[in-house]
Structures are given as C-alpha cells and as structure tokens.
C-alpha cells in the first residue's frame, strides 16, 4: 500500500517537475504541493504515535508500527523533550522515544491531536536540500490502574527535509521531491487557563 502511494506521489510530482526547467527552485504552487506531502507524513506520524501509545494495541502490532514510523525519519533524527517545570532539553533517539511511549505505565492512554498545524517556509540549506518545520499539538491523557489521571498538552515542532531526487520508470528518468522527517522538539505547553 505504502509503495503504491509512493508511486503515485512520484508520478504526481514528475508532472509538476516536467513543467519547469529549474528543477530545484520552489515556486509558491510547488511549495504548496510539497507542504501537502510533508503534512501527510506528519499526519502519518501522528496516527502512528496514537497507535503506539494506545494500550489496546497488541505488543507485536505496536512494534510493527514503530518500524513503520522510523521509515518516515532521516537517519539520526532525535526528539528533544522539555516540560514546563524543566527548562532543559532531554534528547532521545526516535526509536527510544517511541519505545518509551509504548512502555508507559498507564492502564489507559488517550492521545488526541488538535486540529491545527503551522507550516513554515522551506529554506534551502548549503547542501541543496530544503528544510522546514511543521508545528502540531498533542493532548495526552494517561490513567493509572488506581484511576489517577495525568494530562499534558505538547507542542511538537517537526523538522521536514525536502530533497529533489530522480528515479527511473520504464527507462524514463523522472524527478520527484522526497520528504523525510528530522529532529522533533517536544515542548509541554499550557494553551488555556
């Protein structure tokens, strides 16, 4: 399913790509197309986090989803986590972060995502890749066996790398924009009183 989706994305972007000679210049319309692709990856991430954190998810399924989640990320991506009472950032590898989420000691966990996302501009790096940040908000609720409830709202600033790549389909070289997720900054926040 994933491969089929990737194939269609490739085709979609090759159509965009063939219209312009300057392949690595981002016009507003192209940026919007890439934003949608990036947002789709972030939505996949949100969905996977909810599944991994859910106590009803079987252990083997959660592990499978962790592997799927890791496919979204560039190598070496990290999670930098801080809370309202602790200003310093604690660093975790993505796998470590997800495994900790899976192992949280709650009887019930409910992860919800706010219907809000903020997409930054894409800025070109010296290596030619583009980088942007998508901000999303998550509400976490964990209930212990004893009925004690823990709730937090976290802001997640997700790095998005966009790179121009080519692939060969039926002898034709086709260009496409590949999107990978990078480091994520996780900040506890208090939106309301």
């Amino acid at each position: 399913m994933m491969k089929i989706k990737a194939f269609f994305l490739i085709l979609a972007f090759s159509a965009i790509g063939s219209q312009l000679a300057a392949q690595d210049v981002l016009s507003p319309s192209r940026k919007q197309a890439i934003d949608s692709l990036a947002l789709e990856k972030v939505r996949d991430l949100s969905k996977y986090i909810s599944i991994i954190g859910n106590k009803d998810t079987p252990w083997s399924e959660a592990n499978r989803v962790i592997e799927r989640t890791l496919e979204l990320f560039a190598d070496g991506a990290m999670m930098g986590v801080s809370s309202i009472n602790r200003e310093e950032v604690n660093y975790y590898g993505v796998r470590e972060y997800l495994e900790r989420l899976m192992a949280l000691n709650y009887d019930r966990v409910n992860i919800q995502w706010y219907n809000i996302q903020y997409i930054s501009d894409l800025e070109r790096q010296p290596d030619g890749k583009y980088v942007g940040v998508i901000t999303i908000y998550q509400r976490f609720e964990g209930v212990t066996k004893e009925g004690l409830k823990y709730v937090d709202v976290t802001k997640k600033d997700v790095t998005v790398y966009v790179e121009r790549k080519t692939t060969q389909i039926s002898g034709r070289i086709i260009g496409f924009w590949d999107v990978m997720l990078g480091d994520i900054r996780v900040t506890e926040t208090k939106p309301g009183n």
């Binding site: 903020y118 901000t135 709202v153 802001k155 939106p191 009183n193």
Partner: peptide, 20 residues
C-alpha cells in the same frame, strides 16, 4: 477569550514559530 473559545483557538492566536 479562553472560556469562550477553548484551547484550539488560543493555539491559533499564539505566534507558534519565529517564522510566523
């Protein structure tokens, strides 16, 4: 504002990134 609209609108109003 908070009591009327709830959290999500507050998040919309906040300046979430330096880019924003």
């Amino acid at each position: 504002f908070n009591s009327l609209l709830g959290d999500e609108s507050i998040l919309h109003a906040q300046t979430k990134q330096v880019n924003q």
